[in-house]
Nucleic acid binder design. Structure first.
Lengths: 252, 252
DNA sequence: CGACATGTTGAACCTCATCAACCGACGTGG
DNA sequence: CCACGTCGGTTGATGAGGTTCAACATGTCG
């Protein structure tokens, strides 16, 4: 489970890799120190359950590295991933006694955790922090609704392409305005899938087999190359995007 | 389109049917008067487009009565309803220049609208109001994720049952703690569908025909009775819920 | 090495989409 | 007033896209 919980000093926060992109970016130095006093860095291994469904909330977290899946499941074993949490996102459902889903580490995860009571007090004291978290939540809601279109209206092929495109966009090199510095060329991407086939299936509302077949299709038609089971190379993201199809094509 | 925009007085707000359940419930009398000064009651007819996708946000609204559908669509004509807004919910995406989806009246709608600039200023001045809206958004996010499970993992039969159950729960009589006062008995419900078959299909990620067939199935097996095309009677909600199946069965 | 987890591929089956016909209600114009 | 078109809804026949079941490949760890 978690190793070496260490309190974070003001300095650590100030140097934090995700300082400016995470919710804590809303705070000044003094407030940051306050936050640092209640926060601890914790490490999770792939597969660790971070928050259990229906259980009392005990902490929130900022993800420093790694990917966490938010999962809903039914009694008969069906599962659906309802969200992926990347760095520097915030994990946890504020103002609720219990958590409405499973949160499980998809990869090894490094996270900065805060006890819920302390953090919620901080939220009360610092409207800026709450505002930042609110904006965060609005973005999450937008993404969730985007994904509802994928789940409800896209074909298996489009779903898999959409997933790959989503992951590609989350990669550090892509999406920033310096895509030209990409060694593979301006429209290529190269990344490791943070999810197993089973996870991808649960994210897309498909079966493992269908995901595997669609990946093979994309490979066969040259849209992607599978370097290993997990490592993907996309020669031309625009092609991938056009296969992902529809929804928000206006995005350049 | 909209008829008779009238400024709302403090008194009107104080008497408002949804006063305590809507976001404005966070405000005291004085603040409420302030809100009343910028708000106008507007009426929309079924089919009216309330907010257009990608267009600049000009106003927010509290729904007083009626149902609004939030819809995403793709260039090739596929559509997905990504949310339903009932009274006393709040409509609009705060802190964003444009709207990420279509909002269209599913039924006739009465709404209390606020110009976005004025309302966002009010949010800044009154953290309580922003907090209330935040909680609202968190609940919307929870619902969206619930629905992702429905879209990704449920069969057509379960989807239709889930939809009916959702509508039934939204009915005034049901869900409140006085269900025993229900003239039809403690577990029955009787309501009018606020959506056409086409809308239901777009909400469930199905086709019109499949929705129609599944409704007929539920009728044939006695789970529901269709009084007219739109009016539904559910003799036993527990049965409907069990067909809707899975996800969050813990809910009594 | 064998055991196990992860991933791929094939064949058969089934659910749901598609295409099409039909019904009743409603509104309009001749 | 009735003929007509339109709209929302139902039902049937057919077929495609995904699931299911099963075999096999690959990689890793004891």
């Amino acid at each position: 489970m978690a190793h070496d919980p260490v309190h974070i000093g003001k300095n650590t926060c100030a140097n934090c890799a995700i300082r400016h992109r995470a919710v804590c970016g809303a705070l000044n130095d003094e407030e940051l120190a306050e936050l640092g006093r209640i926060g601890r860095v914790r490490h999770f291994k792939a597969g660790d359950i971070i928050l259990a469904d229906e259980e009392a909330t005990t902490f929130f977290a900022n993800i420093i590295s790694g990917v966490i899946k938010l999962e809903k499941s039914s009694a008969d074993g069906r599962q659906q991933i309802v969200g992926l949490v990347f760095a520097p996102d915030f994990l946890g459902r504020a103002f609720s006694k219990s958590n409405p889903y499973f949160a499980q580490a998809a990869t090894d995860v490094e996270a900065c955790t805060f006890p819920n009571t302390g953090f919620e007090q901080l939220l009360k004291k610092h409207p800026d922090l709450e505002h930042r978290l609110f904006e965060n939540t609005l973005n999450e809601l937008d993404s969730a609704r985007e994904w509802m279109f994928v789940l409800g209206r896209k074909s298996a092929q489009e779903k898999v392409a959409s997933f790959l495109y989503l992951i590609a966009k989350r990669q550090p090199l892509i999406g920033c305005s310096h895509a030209e510095h990409n060694p593979l060329g301006p429209h290529a991407a190269n990344f490791e899938l943070p999810l197993t086939r089973a996870d991808i299936a649960d994210f897309l509302g498909l079966t493992i087999e269908t995901v595997s077949r669609q990946l093979s299709n994309l490979k066969r038609q040259g849209t992607i190359r599978l370097l290993s089971g997990r490592e993907v190379l996309v020669p031309d993201l625009r092609q991938l995007q056009s296969i992902a199809g529809a929804s928000d094509e206006a995005v350049a």
